[in-house]
């Protein structure tokens, strides 16, 4: 009885290891070849070098693109978390008509579900129709829309763990709305705010498809610059850039895990059946997996 059990658990572990190997293979390959002396991506590796990193830091277009991405991501965090958290709070506490609410909640995740190709081009049409020059602002408009659904979902999920009676108590004891928001609600959702901020930053910083259409010829974001390198100059310099990005992303994930992740992920196992059957598992699934369109 015990041996087959141990065998199945061994097989399970082995299978999972293979799955993770598949998932991580591209990233590992990218990192390894960033130190490869040869210009070509083939084994065996001849020797190790830091040349590609040295070459990387002397590229002005790369630095400009990184700056642009940084600005856009920071602004996206400010706007998206700002607007999204207010909406999350109101939406969670709003006992509106069921039909109205379910209509709104089916519209909210739309930017995540529809392919970025379609609404990225629709945005391009909008901007060209009204003669808006493509700039970091046009990219920002799209990135906010892409990340809003996640912020709203994370915040309203987090609020489900705060009993409305607590707020009622604060209100009936004489606190004003802003005071209650600041002293009661804000401390409760603070970790979720931080987590959604980190997530929003990462999504915006790495976003490709929308930026592809909305950057135009005048400027680049980092992912778009990488794309043009892949297209026109396949050199290990791409690997060096990508490695730095991966390290950065890894640090953010660690921070995220440390702040909210562990709790949120454990929460998934517990929230059995309390979700609205109209949206099968949607909120938390989206919450932990980032946008499908990024």
């Amino acid at each position: 009885m015990n041996l087959p059990k141990r065998l199945t658990s061994l097989a399970r572990g082995l299978f999972l290891a293979l799955v993770f190997l598949f998932l991580f293979a591209p990233s590992v390959v990218v990192v390894v070849f960033s130190f490869n002396e040869s210009r070509f991506f083939s084994l065996p590796i001849k020797g190790y070098t830091f040349d590609w990193y040295r070459e990387m830091i002397h590229r002005t277009p790369l630095i400009d693109a990184t700056k642009n991405s940084f600005y856009i991501a920071t602004l996206t965090v400010v706007v998206s978390v700002g607007l999204g958290s207010i909406t999350g709070v109101i939406f969670n506490r709003w006992r509106a008509n069921r039909i109205v609410k379910s209509m709104i909640s089916s519209v909210i995740p739309m930017p995540l579900l529809l392919p970025g190709l379609i609404w990225g081009l629709a945005l391009l049409i909008l901007f060209s129709r009204f003669d808006v020059r493509l700039s970091i602002w046009t990219v920002l408009a799209a990135h906010v829309l892409l990340t809003l659904p996640l912020v709203i979902l994370i915040i309203s999920t987090r609020l489900q763990t705060l009993d409305p009676a607590v707020e009622e108590a604060a209100l009936s004891l004489g606190a004003t709305y802003p005071e209650t928001l600041y002293r009661v609600v804000l401390p409760h959702i603070a970790p979720a705010l931080l987590a959604s901020g980190l997530m929003t930053f990462t999504i915006s910083f790495n976003e490709f498809i929308l930026s592809f259409f909305l950057t135009g010829g005048g400027f680049n974001t980092l992912p778009i610059y990488i794309y043009s390198l892949i297209r026109w100059e396949a050199s290990p310099i791409i690997n060096a850039i990508a490695t730095v990005m991966l390290v950065f992303a890894g640090l953010l994930v660690l921070a995220m895990y440390w702040i909210e992740g562990a709790r949120a992920l454990r929460g998934i196992s517990r929230q059995s059946g309390e979700g609205d059957p109209a949206e099968p598992g949607a909120p938390s699934a989206i919450q932990v997996t980032q946008g499908a369109t990024s």
Binding site: F20, L23, F24, A25, P26, S27, V29, V30, T202, F205, N206, E207, F208, I209, P223, I226, Y227, I230, I238, A242, M245, L246, A249, G250, L252, V253, Y257, G261, A262, L265, V288, T289, Q290, S294
Partner: peptide, 17 residues
């Protein structure tokens, strides 16, 4: 969390890999 890590790496970087 491990499952989400590659999802946080850039789309274009993973395609390049």
């Amino acid at each position: 969390a491990l499952l989400i890590v590659p999802w946080w790496a850039s789309y274009i970087v993973r395609i390049f890999g």
